[in-house]
Amino acid sequence: MYAIKTDSLTKYYGKSRGITNISLTVSEGDFFGFIGPNGAGKSTTIRTLLGLITPTSGSAELLGMDIMKQRNEILQKTGYMPSEASFYRGMKVREVIRYSAALRGLDCRKEAARLLDRLELNPDKKIRELSLGNRKKVSIICALQHHPRLLILDEPTSGLDPLMQREFFAILKEHNADGAAIFLSSHILSEIQRYCRHAAVIREGNILICDEVKNLGHTRAKQITLLGVSAPPAIDGIKNIESVEDGVKFLYSGDYHALLSALSSMPVTDMNMTEPDLEEIFMHYYRSGDM
């Protein structure tokens, strides 16, 4: 059974595109990254999975249950952290957290107290007095206090300071180690690279690639930096040319003999050839859609 399984999931808002034919699987217990620029369809995918919006076509299952028919059962076992944490402004932190537990018909006071302590959040503060970061902490507690089997997090770290981000991921890793699947939408690549085992890249409503994070960095293309020249050799397979101090940087996916032969006649003073980092690949996907 998969934590998340979508089959050609499509959502149109009238005539404008939300997501088109999203098919992906997230295994139980996985730590899955969902990468894409603003407007790519990350939040639309998540909101469709959670039943906030109805898909135009296609289907999806969360924890083996149909998102259209078994919404309540799914939400009972799912924790969700939205990208913008908004709560009832007149309520106190403690009241919002208890209300969330009560809506689930649960008493989560013990776990809530533990999380409040770890996230250093004052439960007696009014929501309207909280900074974005502190509202995010309330959201984290509401998403985690009932020990969900699936956690869906939409750009969760915006507003959290670096120390709190580390604590947040430590908590996530503990839940993941306990068997919870984590679906993390983000455009912060270092987060995905550091914490996720699998990831999918979404662009203009389509999934471009879905693979293990370590494989996403392995492509045929190499990043080459040449010093002493201002332009790359005039051969096929060169992309993303950038000027650097006293040299040029580019991605190369052509024949190495052709490259070496071309370089032998150029005044190159130094050369560096590496795997492109995830950010490089990510930017490339954003621009062209293939690698």
């Binding site: 959670l50 939205p82 908004s86």
Partner: peptide, 14 residues
């Protein structure tokens, strides 16, 4: 209007 729908409707209530 007050952006709390996302909070409310992601709880297990029909």
């Amino acid at each position: 209007k007050e952006h709390t729908a996302e909070f409310l409707l992601t709880h297990p209530l029909s």
